[in-house]
Write a protein that binds this DNA or RNA. Structure first.
Length: 352
DNA sequence: AACACGGGGGC
DNA sequence: GCCCCAGTGTT
């Protein structure tokens, strides 16, 4: 792209953004900590999903010190349902580092930002441009899609090494005068116009600079290889009550999938089998309940069936467990599939 | 470089 | 159903 085209691209993009850019809660603040929170929540998560979480989060954890001092469980509870919970743990760890090392003030230095836990190339670029006005690219899937079309870049955006190409082109394009608006304009363009399917090219402010549009091949971009298929795991979810009517729940380990979350005990079953789980076979009373739920993670599928048993079955040792009343579930972070179980239980109670 | 890591929404 | 999404940490 020639210099005059670069200037035109910037001009058209920023003019469009001024007219059509979204009014988002985290665009109404200059507080780098709030912008940081929003950027972490927005990783792999869409704007409309994030909004209510963001509002609650900055209300309850209004300062870096407040988040640093909070129990991890309360942070996970706040993040409950948003997914990718390591983001929440990493954010809190990063914030604790900022409180320790930088007196609670986010550094405006790329190297220092990248040293913080939970801040990678994207978030560092977003913070440097949006919070600190520095001309740094912030390359995400959105920006890669836009640039793959504008420049007809054939690199597979699913591959890590492809990002370098996109950094280079954005680095040449980025508006030195207003990098914050530039990066956010690209994000809005990607979300509103340059969508994955059926991009709205006739309304695109930079269609005249877009190679794919000129060649009418915009739907061929971006090039992205398919991820491998998710594996399926079958579980029995165990409902067991004590004499006070409380339910047994357990805490997942502090690493791996849904680390630190609470759940009803889960026993893995044979896949594609109607056989009762082996752990249940010697019990006097086992009732299969009218609750079956398929939960899809990106890399894994849970096939869940709910059972009520009359006594605690043999469960693995070394796991934290508690008897908890239905009214007290809200104190604990649960993964969504187990929130569905809680909903089911509450409906059951209402109808009986 | 590949993999692990959640959940919701669009069509 | 399948694909998408404002990525980072670990190995």
């Amino acid at each position: 792209m020639h210099q005059n085209e670069i200037i035109a691209f910037n001009h058209e993009l920023l003019a469009w953004f001024q007219q059509n850019g979204r009014d988002l809660p985290w665009r109404r603040t200059k507080n780098p900590y709030y912008i940081w929170v929003s950027e972490v929540m927005l990783q792999q998560t869409q704007v409309d999903t994030v909004k209510p979480y963001y509002d609650r989060f900055i209300t309850d954890f209004a300062t870096p010190e407040a988040l640093a001092d909070a129990p991890e469980q309360s942070v996970l509870k706040m993040w409950e349902g948003l997914g990718y919970y390591s983001r929440a743990r990493n954010l809190q760890q990063g914030v604790r580092e900022v409180v320790e090392k930088y007196d609670g003030k986010l550094p405006d230095d790329k190297k220092k930002l990248l040293e913080l836990h939970g801040i990678g190339p994207y978030t560092a670029g977003a913070l440097l441009s949006i919070a600190f006005g520095q001309p740094e690219p912030a390359i995400d899937g959105n920006v890669m899609r836009v640039m793959s079309r504008v420049f007809m870049i054939d690199a597979d955006i699913a591959k890590a090494k492809s990002k370098k190409q996109f950094e280079e082109v954005v680095g040449k394009l980025i508006a030195e005068a207003n990098p914050s608006a530039f990066n956010q304009a690209l994000m809005d363009l990607g979300a509103m116009i340059c969508r994955p399917k059926r991009p709205d090219c006739p309304n695109c402010p930079v269609r005249r600079q877009c190679k794919a549009y000129s060649a009418r091949v915009q739907e061929k971009y971006p090039v992205k290889s398919r991820p491998k298929k998710a594996t399926v795991r079958c579980y029995a979810i165990v409902l067991v009550q004590d004499q006070l009517g409380r339910y047994l729940i357990e805490q997942r380990t502090d690493s791996g999938l849904l680390a630190g979350f609470w759940q009803f005990p889960m026993v893995e079953c044979e896949t594609n089998s109607d056989l009762l789980p082996a752990a249940f076979r010697k019990l006097a009373s086992v009732e299969r309940l009218d609750f079956h739920y398929i939960h899809r993670f990106s890399h894994l599928v849970w096939d869940l069936t709910l059972y009520r048993v009359d006594q605690a079955i043999d469960l693995p040792a070394g796991v934290a467990r508690k008897w908890v009343a239905v009214d007290e579930f809200e104190r604990y972070p649960f993964p969504v599939p187990h929130l569905k179980v809680i909903d089911w239980l509450k409906n059951l109670r209402m109808n009986t």
